[in-house]
Design a protein around this nucleic acid. Structure first.
Lengths: 399, 399
DNA sequence: CGAATTTATTGACTCTGGAAAAGAATTAGT
DNA sequence: ACTAATTCTTTTCCAGAGTCAATAAATTCG
C-alpha cells in the first residue's frame, strides 16, 4: 500500500512547478540562491516544514533539484541539514538582445550563467545613421546565433528589444530604435526556430536578471537604472516588475529635470535623456572641448586630461541631472536599493562624486538610506537579461 | 443531522471578514460599490458562484450585508438577481485630521459617508508662525471631537497626520509640521478614548479614500496628487498603496523640476514644492504683483484681474512645474488615472490649460493616455480619509 | 553506547474552493 | 393556466494544499 503514492509526472516540454504555487515558490527561492536547506525554504516561503518536503519531492523527481551534502562540517548536535540545489545544467537557454546593427546572443544554464556569447552583425541598411533592420534579417540572425550556440536542448529563447513590448501578447508594439511597429516577434521567431520564445522590453529583461540573480536578491523594492544611448529604469515594487497600465513604466530617461530644458526627441522638454543621453552628451562635450568626441571612453580620457576642466564641469552637471532623475524614483517609490548600470563606462568615475552627493541631497528624509550601487553594464548583460525572461517563463512565472 | 452546520460566529468587537480571504474579497467589493449581485461578485473576485454563496452567508449573518430586491424590474426571463448591500449604518467611524492649529474630525458610516463634521482649534502656541501643538493638546481635542460627534458606538477612530507615520507600529515617526518625533500616537489616543485607533500619513489616508470609495474605484494603478501647503502624492500600484522601504513614498513635492532651481526647506534644490508650495507661490506672486497676496482665493482673484498678466505668467509657469512633476509619476509608474486635488482652489482654473497641456506633452508614449481628473480637495476630505483608514482596518485590511 | 539534539518525513485532519447537479424564481409560449 | 425555457443561487461532493503533531533519521556529546 505504500506503492499507492502516485507516480510523479515529468513533463519535459513544460516541466515545471506552476502546478502548485508552493512548488513554484520553493523552486524560485532555490533557483535564485542556488541552493538552500529545507528549513531555510520554510522560513523563506512561509510554508510549514511538511509543506516544504511535499513541494520539494516532485522537483527532485523531475530532476530540477538535487540533494547535496553540506560542505561545512555541521556544528553542534543533531541531524545535519540537507541541502537542495538547482540542477542548473539541466536546461539551456538562449537570450538575444536585438540592436539596430547587430544582435548579441548568449547561452546560459538554468541559473543564468553565461556559457557562450555570439554577436552577429545585421546587414547594413543603406548609409543612414539610424538603420532600421527588417524583421526577417533579425530572425535570420537569431537562427544563425542558435546554430553558433548549439541549438540542441535549448529549452527556450528570450528576446530583449527596446521600446514598447507586450510580453504576454508576444509582440513588439513600437520600437523607435528598430523602426518596428506591431511586430508579432514571438510567434515569428518561434515558428522559424521551432522553440518556445519569450520577448520583453530590454530594460525589464535586465531588471529581471538582477531581481532573480543579482543586485535585487532578497529585496522587494528596487530599481535598476541603465545609462547608455538612452536612459532607462526597471522598477521592482513588492517583488513585481512594473509594466505600467499602458505598457509604459520606468521611463526614467523622460523624467524632466529642467522645466525649461532642451527639447527631447520624444517631444517633451528637459528630459534627462536629452541632457545625459549618449549622443547628446558627446555632442555637448564636443562643443565644450572644441573638438569631436566620439565615444564614452574618449570622453572619459578627455575628462582626465589636463585641459579637461570644461568637460569635467559638463560631466558634473550631467551627473547631477542623472542624480536628480534617480532621486525622483527614490522619492516617489522609496526603493531599498538602486543599481546604476552604465554602458561602457564607470558612472562614479565619469560623473564624479557629484552624482552620489546630489542623489543623497535630493532624496527626501529616510529615503536617503537607499543603497546605491554602480557598475558597468557589460555588453552581454542585455542578452543575459533576455535569457532570464526565458528562464522565468520556463519556471512558470508568466507575467 | 442538518443542524450540524456550525453556528455562525458573530464577533462584535472585531466583527469581520479577515477569517477567510474570500470573505474579505467579497466584502471589499460590496463595500466599495455599495451593492452587488452574487453573480457580479463572482466575476469581480474571480470566485465561483458556490464560493460566493459561502462567503456571503456569514456576512449576512453578521449583519454586515443585507439582501435587497432589485430596483429595476428584471428584464428577460429567469430568476431575478438578488442584490446584497452593505449595512452601512451598522457602524460608525470617526476620522481626525491633525493640523498645526486645529483638528478636523468627521463621523462616517461604514461606506465613509460623512454624517457630521467638527473643527476644534488647538490652543495657540505663542506667536510663532509655525506652531507645534503638544501631543496632549491634540489628544484633548480629539476627545472633545468625539464627544461632539457622539462617542457611542464608534467602531474605530482613524487619525491622519502629515509626515512619516508608521501605521502598523502606530507611531508618528517624524512630523515637521507638528514638530513631533517618535510619538506613539495610536496607543496614546487609544488609551485616552478606550477605542480602537488607527493612524496613518494624511496623503495616504486620502488616497485610501479614493481607492475605496472614489476616483480609484475599479483601477489597479492610480495616483492622487494633493496640492496645498505642500505637494503630496499617494500611489496605488497593483491595488496596493505604496509606503516605500523606509516609510517614504509619493514625495512628489520633492521631485526636482529644475536642477538649478531654488533651494527647498528639505535641503534639496528645485523641488516642485519650493516653487508651487502655497507659501512659496504666494510670496512669489506678491513679488510679481507688487503687493502682498495672502490666500489662494486672493491669488485667483488677482489672476483674473486686468493687471494680472504677470501673475498669470507666474501661475502658468507654476502649473507647468506641477505638470512636469506629475509627468514623472506618469512616466515612472504608468498609472491609469491621476486625480489632482487642490486645496482651496481649482487647479485647472488657476494654472490654466498649461497644466494639462504640459502633462500631456511630458508624458511618454502611451502613458499619455492616462485619465486626468482635477477637483478641489474639500476641507473635510482629509478627515474622511482618516475615517477610511479606520474602516479598512476594521474590515480586515491591515497594511 | 545511550541521551540529547536537530532536521526531515509521514499521516491524519482541516479548510477552501471548484464543478456540476439541483433548486428557485421568474418570463415566454401555446 | 400550464409547460418550457431561462437565469440566478444553493447544495453536494470532491480534490488539493497545507498544518499539526507524532515519528523517523542522522548526527554530537558525555
Amino acid at each position: 500500500m505504500l506503492g499507492a503514492s502516485k507516480p510523479e509526472r515529468i513533463r519535459r516540454d513544460r516541466p515545471i512547478t506552476a502546478d502548485s504555487p508552493s512548488a513554484l515558490a520553493v523552486f524560485t527561492e532555490v533557483l535564485s540562491r542556488g541552493s538552500a536547506t529545507r528549513g531555510e525554504l520554510g522560513t523563506l516561503t512561509g510554508l510549514s516544514a511538511g509543506a516544504v518536503t511535499k513541494a520539494v519531492r516532485p522537483l527532485l523527481a523531475a530532476g530540477l533539484l538535487r540533494e547535496r551534502a553540506s560542505l561545512h562540517a555541521p556544528v553542534g548536535a543533531g541531524r545535519p541539514v540537507q541541502i537542495v540545489e538547482v540542477v542548473a545544467e539541466r536546461e539551456r537557454f538562449v537570450g538575444v538582445k536585438v540592436n539596430a546593427e547587430q544582435i548579441v546572443a548568449v547561452a546560459t544554464d538554468l541559473r543564468a550563467t553565461v556559457t557562450d556569447t555570439v554577436e552577429i552583425a545585421l546587414p547594413r541598411q543603406g548609409r543612414s545613421l539610424a538603420p532600421h533592420p527588417p524583421v526577417e534579417e533579425v530572425v535570420t540572425a537569431i537562427r544563425r546565433a542558435l546554430v553558433a550556440l548549439g541549438r540542441h536542448d535549448v529549452a527556450a529563447v528570450g528576446i530583449a528589444v527596446s521600446g514598447d513590448v507586450d510580453r504576454s501578447g508576444g509582440s513588439v508594439e513600437f520600437s523607435p530604435l528598430l523602426g518596428w511597429e506591431s511586430v508579432p516577434l514571438r510567434d515569428i521567431v518561434s515558428a522559424a526556430t521551432r522553440l518556445p520564445v519569450v520577448i520583453d522590453n530590454d530594460v525589464r529583461a535586465v531588471t529581471s536578471a538582477e531581481q532573480w540573480f543579482g543586485a535585487g536578491l532578497g529585496v522587494d523594492d528596487f530599481a535598476v537604472v541603465t545609462i547608455g544611448a538612452g536612459i532607462g529604469c526597471g522598477l521592482v515594487v513588492s517583488s513585481k516588475i512594473q509594466r505600467g497600465s499602458f505598457g509604459v513604466a520606468g521611463e526614467l530617461g523622460h523624467v524632466c529635470v529642467d522645466v525649461d530644458g532642451p527639447r527631447c526627441h520624444c517631444g517633451a522638454q528637459g528630459c534627462v535623456e536629452a541632457i545625459a543621453g549618449r549622443e547628446e552628451l558627446l555632442t555637448r562635450a564636443g562643443e565644450v572641448a572644441g573638438r569631436r568626441v566620439r565615444t564614452m571612453a574618449g570622453l572619459a580620457r578627455l575628462a582626465k586630461s589636463d585641459d579637461g576642466a570644461a568637460v569635467r564641469e559638463l560631466l558634473d552637471h550631467t551627473g547631477r541631472c542623472v542624480a536628480v532623475a534617480i532621486a525622483s524614483v527614490v522619492n516617489l517609490f522609496g526603493p531599498r536599493r538602486v543599481l546604476i548600470s552604465a554602458e561602457g563606462f564607470d558612472a562614479d568615475a565619469l560623473f564624479g562624486p557629484g552624482l552620489r552627493q546630489t542623489l543623497q541631497r535630493q532624496s527626501f528624509g529616510r529615503a536617503g538610506e537607499i543603497e546605491v550601487l554602480t557598475r558597468e553594464l557589460p555588453f552581454s548583460e542585455w542578452a543575459r537579461g533576455a535569457a532570464v525572461i526565458a528562464i522565468t517563463d520556463f519556471v512558470g512565472h508568466r507575467v
